[in-house]
């Protein structure tokens, strides 16, 4: 049974957590890379630490792990 979304569903709540953070990571990581390597850093305090890139990487890893760990597998749907 998919945890949290109801009997018979195949996508678990943790899968949604994973997908959402993975999507954000995949948006932030390339944008942070473009800022860093293209010299387009925003004028924020400590921008020289490239927070967008590193935070994007962290979210990608976290989201990727959860998405993979809780992805629907064959036979999940309908199993109560």
């Amino acid at each position: 049974m998919a945890e949290g979304t109801g009997r018979g569903e195949s996508l678990s709540i943790w899968f949604f957590v994973g997908v959402m953070t993975l999507l954000y990571g995949l948006v932030l990581l390339p944008y942070g890379a473009w800022e860093w390597f293209g010299g387009h850093e925003a004028n924020t305090v400590l921008h020289q630490l490239h927070p967008t890139f590193w935070w994007g990487l962290l979210l990608t890893l976290f989201g990727g792990f959860y998405t993979f760990r809780y992805k629907p597998r064959a036979g999940d749907a309908g199993r109560a």
Partner: peptide, 8 residues
């Protein structure tokens, strides 16, 4: 706003 640029 102090620490987070576009995206963040």
């Amino acid at each position: 706003i102090r620490y987070c640029g576009p995206g963040l």
